[in-house]
């Protein structure tokens, strides 16, 4: 077995120190070592995007990054989207617009949409929203309500005039 590496990672604002085998994926580190199981593994080969988290603010397939690579970086998972059991406007919009069925892709969709709305606060066109979420596969919804929810969340998040 390869030598373990000491890492320091900030996850959802909290600093974690750990020793990891180099081959341990960031997804497994979050799920198994930190028990942040809201990040879901759908394919482990970088297609389904269900394991998407934000690393230094960038949407990232956590099955395609090793935990050791996250050393010194900041990770945001679905558990960190809203504090104290509140709902982030995106979470609320997903609820109100029935943008989830089984919920398995939902954390990845939320984080992908979160990154998208930071670069496109007005949510852009439907086509742009669809392009933005095209890296996360959803098998339940047919995507339509997800697009609707992201647009609705953008309105909620816009600073009042």
């Amino acid at each position: 077995m390869a030598e373990k590496h000491a890492i320091t990672v900030t996850v959802n604002g909290r600093l974690y120190r750990a020793e990891v085998e180099p081959r341990r994926t960031l997804a497994d580190f979050l799920r198994e070592d930190l028990n942040l199981v809201g990040t879901h593994l759908g394919c482990e080969h970088g297609v389904c995007g269900n394991c998407t988290v934000l690393v230094d603010g960038k949407s990232t397939r956590s099955c395609l990054m090793f935990a050791v690579q996250a050393d010194g970086r900041e990770v945001l998972t679905v558990e960190g989207l809203a504090p104290n059991g509140d709902l982030h406007p995106l979470q609320r919009a997903f609820w109100e617009h029935h943008a989830l069925q089984c919920g398995f892709c939902t954390p990845a969709m939320l984080l992908t949409a979160y990154e998208y709305l930071t670069t496109r606060p007005d949510a852009g066109t439907d086509e742009e929203i669809r392009e933005a979420i095209s890296g996360v596969l959803c098998r339940c919804t047919g995507y339509q309500n997800i697009v609707t929810a992201i647009r609705a969340a953008a309105k909620q998040m816009a600073p009042s005039p």
């Binding site: 390869a2 180099p22 081959r23 050393d71």
Partner: peptide, 10 residues
Amino acid sequence: MKPVAFDYYR
């Protein structure tokens, strides 16, 4: 679906 062990250099 997990990788085989490897040495890691950064």
